[in-house]
């Protein structure tokens, strides 16, 4: 028992994690979603400047199952979800593991607003199944879950919480610094928050908003200042997607990052993709909320340093 002390301490969190996994599957299956499995090892990931993949025998461990899931979606699998391990190099902190668990789901004939509502329903379902009622308590703060949750645009959130406007932060090349230091700590307090409508450059697979082409239809879900999920109305224009990939790949190569092949089958499949929306949620962080855990290590059995 002595040698297993650190693992034994996690038992209640790991049991809660198993229950959450089961309840998520119940939720999606009851809504007619199909559970899918796509390969972890892929020949060409989506080029995103700030996501570094791990290379394995000349292929790549997927940083998310996005490309294969969208190919399924384009082939007529209308509502699909997946719970899988994803891999990102050099991401390690109290909210980051280089190997982590993603819950990703896609819906046809839907946009990002529909996914906001589905997030509300999903987390309310979990809260009820876990005996929380209409609120969850995290690190001493109560987060009420009654619908609708707070919705605030990136522009409005910067105006409300930051010393700079979005435009000033982008011009000064400090969007990420201002977002994380001044804006994020205020989000998801009292109730969850959807931060939505991101500047065009900050959503490489998202569709531009019809009413305002300077932003993309993207949102992030926050609870207690912690980012839980990222969602898009999907970009279905294959040519526009190719241009954005070329642009990102160009930035990656100029920064000396390893080149990625173009994911041709994915770009090809976009021609058949109808209006749809998709979302990726960090499952470990969701478990942190319900387990009232401060560190991601508290909700996984084996953080890499313990192996």
């Amino acid at each position: 028992m002595d040698g297993s002390w650190l693992l034994a301490k996690k038992q209640s969190a790991l049991r809660l994690r198993a229950k959450i996994l089961q309840e998520l599957r119940n939720f999606f299956m009851a809504r007619g979603y199909l559970e899918t499995e796509t390969p972890c090892l892929i020949p060409a990931p989506a080029p995103e400047f700030h996501i570094d993949t791990m290379i394995c025998h000349g292929w790549f461990l997927h940083p998310s199952p996005e490309l294969c899931m969208k190919r399924l979606l384009a082939a007529g699998y209308d509502n699909i979800f997946q719970i899988c391990r994803c891999f990102r190099q050099n991401e390690r902190g109290s909210h980051h593991l280089p190997e982590f668990t993603m819950l990703e789901w896609y819906r046809r004939d839907a946009d990002y607003r529909d996914l906001m509502e589905e997030c509300e329903d999903m987390i309310l379902h979990l809260a009820a199944a876990l005996g929380h009622g209409g609120a969850v308590s995290y690190q001493g703060q109560v987060i009420r879950l009654q619908k609708p949750w707070e919705r605030i645009t990136v522009k409005a959130a910067f105006e409300k919480y930051a010393a700079l406007s979005v435009e000033e932060a982008l011009r000064g090349d400090c969007f990420d610094e201002v977002l994380t230091a001044q804006v994020e700590p205020n989000l998801g307090k009292g109730q969850p928050t959807f931060l939505y409508d991101y500047p065009l450059d900050l959503g490489s697979l998202a569709r531009a908003k019809k009413e305002d082409a300077s932003v993309v239809e993207r949102f992030e879900l926050y609870m207690a200042g912690m980012e839980l999920a990222n969602a898009f109305t999907e970009l279905t224009d294959a040519d526009a997607q190719r241009r954005r990939f070329v642009n990102e790949e160009d930035k990656r190569r100029r920064a000396g990052k390893p080149p990625y092949p173009v994911p041709e089958p994915f770009l090809e499949s976009l021609r058949d993709l109808e209006e749809s929306a998709g979302i990726a949620l960090g499952l470990d962080r969701l478990v942190m909320i319900f387990a009232d855990a401060l560190h991601i290590d508290d909700v996984v059995a084996f953080p890499p340093e313990t192996l």
Binding site: E48, E91, H96, E177, G203
Partner: peptide
């Protein structure tokens, strides 16, 4: 030491 990284943003080391 804190590793911070917004979803699609860059890694920051606070």
């Amino acid at each position: 030491f804190n590793f911070v990284k917004p979803g699609k943003g860059q890694a920051l080391y606070r």
